[in-house]
Design a binder for these strands. Structure first.
Lengths: 149, 149
DNA sequence: ATTCCTGCAAAACATTTGCAACTAC
DNA sequence: GTAGTTGCAAATGTTTTGCAGGAAT
């Protein structure tokens, strides 16, 4: 759960981006909050708690940039904002999200079954598929109990 | 590609909603535009073309309502707005979306392979899964050619 | 009648952008 | 030094909400 600084600097240099303290700080937040799906506002709140004076616009710009560099993965859970999480070890993520439609809980689920599906779909559809995103909606254990009771 | 009016009235009555002309008109737009993923603004534009004076707020409220009744399916393609399509015959949709990351094209893909995956995941995760949404990102045939050239 | 619905305008959010000052390289 | 970056404030775009008048059952 850490970031290789050499690779990081290389990635930035390739695209002529500067590795500023602000960008490092924001990236560090994702390292410090593994398995969270942080929105721009979430990141901004954490920054303020740490008495940082990084502006909200910079947060947005940085999230977009880190996403472009495949350092972060951008995702939406239907709550009206974009959320991000670390793209571990530069490998494409092999986890999906289970979203509780009652309480909004988001749970991770590891799975590789979709690799096969991706191949099948690529062949049938003439698309060159580079990534996929899967969301399952339903009721978490907790909310399921409440509904039965 | 049509709507069973008896079922529709029943669905509305169950929840004590009124089947107003505005709601019928908006629903008809989805019947008239199969396989489109319309946003609230799209629907509003179509209404204006038909010289309708239904307000934008009503469009938003109706889309939310039809979505709640499982008559429409709500989805996001990362373009900053919610999009909707008819939930055909009340059955859960068995099609996924292929999204071109170059030109934004959204293509439908029919598939039932995920049914199996849903069962596996439900068992392993203690979630009661009611629906799933799958998006594949990549390059469509057209954009792929441009990239190679 | 009563409850729900509509249109309008204003408000609320999330996100983007213009710009002058600043900083990593 | 220069190109890229930042913070601020203003602008944008989508969606929600308050409210008075209106319509469906």
């Amino acid at each position: 759960m850490s970031i290789n600084m050499t690779d990081l600097r290389e990635k930035f240099r390739e695209r002529q981006y500067k590795l500023t303290p602000q960008r490092q700080t924001i990236l560090q937040i994702f390292v410090d909050h593994p398995d969270k799906h942080l929105s721009a506002e979430d990141v901004y709140d954490i920054l303020r708690q740490h008495a940082s004076d990084i502006g909200l616009a910079t947060v947005y710009r940085t999230l977009e940039l880190l996403s472009d560099l495949d350092i972060l993965q951008k995702m939406e859970f239907g709550d009206g904002c974009n959320r991000y999480e670390l793209n571990q070890n530069n490998t494409l993520h092999h986890h999906h999200h289970l979203i509780c439609i009652a309480c909004g809980l988001v749970k991770e689920f590891e799975d590789d079954l979709l690799e096969t599906l991706e191949t099948v779909i690529a062949r049938k559809s003439n698309f060159t598929i580079t990534d996929h995103q899967v969301k399952f909606y339903g009721y978490c254990q907790e909310c399921q109990k409440k509904r039965e009771g």
